[in-house]
Nucleic acid binder design. Structure first.
Lengths: 201, 201, 201, 201
DNA sequence: CTATAACCGAGACGGTACGTCAGGTCTTCGC
DNA sequence: GCGAAGACCTGACGTACCGTCTCGGTTATAG
């Protein structure tokens, strides 16, 4: 009954120290350079590690970078509960924007860019990204629907994309500002709709 | 009878001829490969052109590709006028989606990816892209506002991003379908808003 | 009919400067290190040249080294004509030994070692090596035969191997000295034969 | 006086099974590949043994290979006694040639190549090689001298090199055939000498 | 009958060099 | 004098082995 003991029996175990050094070096390099300009060679050197060690554990630079991000960075995004879904969404969007425009968060844009050419990585990224995203926003949406603030005939995915899409679009294309004001306007417009109501001027 | 002179086998090709060959080769290669995997070297060889000639006219691969696209491809996007702004937007979004998901249009996603690292190209792209976009959608929006269908207090840029953002987001991340149905749902939601109205069930 | 003019018509010509730098660097490195420990990478760096440039013009390290040797080193081996074939052979063998035991000449042993594993290089080496060798010794042998000093029923190749074989053997295996005295003894023994003659003590 | 038992006081003794597996694997790999292309890694894997075990007992690949050879292969070389030293030498040389040109014996050339760069191994090789060689040929030479067939003023080493040198030379350089006929011609020439005698035509 | 200690397999590790590839610059010569 | 052809330097790629180093586990002998 000693299964728990011999799970990874054979061979020298993976060096936690090396792994840490690699992930740290990766993040550190990403602070100064764009993802494309960060090379495996530089990471290996900075981490004091052989290149082969990196290739052994991560299939690509993108995978390594994503791993570095997910394990080191806790995407500190608020999931507030103010009693108003609209306010909650606004606060959350602001929080997200603050993260994505930070030195650290900027890399996510480069992830999206990166996996336009690396389908394997795209799957990986979607899994991690969407999951965390869904959880954060799902609660707010549900509460809003229950309280009767939000239409109940809207697909969850659709709502997600309506809220995040414009922000991501601006982040990637950079044609318009991405800040708190923008967040407020976006949420306002999405909530109230573009249609002119009879009661409006 | 001056063809004979120009077409003499080993005759020095004219500048315009080279340019055409380069642009053609670029588009042709883009049909089979991802932007990242299309190399200047391959373009030069396929076009029967020296690499230096390419570098002389275009600052980067991205610039060349964009040029190839803008001069060869007319982005056939409808700008309908049905009398209803909502219908117009829906049709236009459907039309756009059809283009962006086509073999040719898919490259635009890769442009967006590409200029996450090439700021110079990003400017170039924004100028071309936004201009054409603004023209197409500006008319619809103006008509809608004039007819009293659409709120007049919305920023033009905001409207643009509300409509295109979710689509671009889905195109880039690929987490949800991008098709006619999606287009209809998006426009419907943006027009009517997420808020539950008293008259709704 | 102007072959001489248009042999290498197109493109930037090969850089004589780079070639010289590569060959020089190769020889220089070989003075300090064994052939096996001289790396293409080191040659490229010392020559201030890209690795690709080396790989473009030489198929292997051995080929490069041999080229460096043949073009830079003139194997200064005497081909004396004293009137006695025996003396001529002795002098030539001494001369050869002096070369092969010099800092420069030692590399030839490593060539022989090298092409035990590189058959392509072996062919190359044999062609160059044997040719020069044959010419040097052929004259002495012919003169000796004509003068009636040497048996005329001996194969040229056989004579070559009888004279050079023992020396090469000692050079490679290093079990016995290779010097002037050895050269004299070898030639003496090969000329007179091992058989005890009636007139000997 | 039972040394074998008490020399290594404590601990698990060396595994004879592993040693055998390593030596077998080494020989087996050498049948297909050149010495240079046989890697310690491959030997370890084929033998089902850790690399460290190999490094523990042999200082280098060359040492391991030589050990494998000396312990597994008995260099079956005839040491005939026909009453004629010339015939004895000829038969022995033929026998040697047969061995050195066999699949197994070919490796000796690679040993010679190998120790042009591994001085430590060179010593090891010389000790083993020369010793066995000396014994085999020493008897023939002594008998020949005693019977008055061979000059008594020749150094033993010199004779050895006169006989083996040309063969080794041809084996290594490969410029001329190495077979029975060559053996006969070599011995004949060495015995009779190159000098033209008055009694010759 | 333990305890000790060297042994062993497996394989991860930091390195070094490999041979290839594309980038972007330059040089020559033909038209 | 433009432009094709292509050689050049640079720098990163991903791979292969090197020789060293942990691991968990396995024998023998010493006590």
């Amino acid at each position: 009954m000693n299964d728990a003991k011999c799970c990874t029996c054979k061979g020298r175990p993976r060096s936690a120290q090396s792994e840490a050094a690699i992930l740290d070096a990766t993040l550190q390099l990403l602070e100064d350079k764009l993802l494309r300009h960060v090379t495996i060679e530089a990471i290996a050197q900075k981490a004091g590690v052989g290149k082969a060690t990196i290739y052994k554990w991560w299939p690509s630079k993108a995978a390594l970078t994503l791993d570095a991000f997910l394990t080191r960075t806790q995407m500190q995004v608020a999931a507030p509960d103010t009693g108003s879904a609209k306010v909650d969404f606004t606060e959350q969007l602001k929080s997200l924007i603050r993260f994505y425009t930070s030195k650290t968060g900027r890399v996510f844009c480069q992830f999206i860019a990166e996996f336009q050419i690396d389908l394997e990585f795209a799957d990986m990224f979607r899994t991690c990204f969407i999951t965390s995203r869904r959880n954060a926003v799902g609660v707010i949406l549900s509460r809003g629907v229950e309280r009767g603030e939000i239409r109940c005939d809207l697909d969850k995915d659709l709502v997600l994309d309506l809220i995040y899409g414009p922000m991501v679009y601006r982040l990637l294309v950079g044609h318009a500002p991405v800040n708190d004001t923008a967040a407020e306007h976006m949420i306002e417009a999405i909530f109230e709709g573009m249609r002119k109501r009879p009661d409006q001027v």
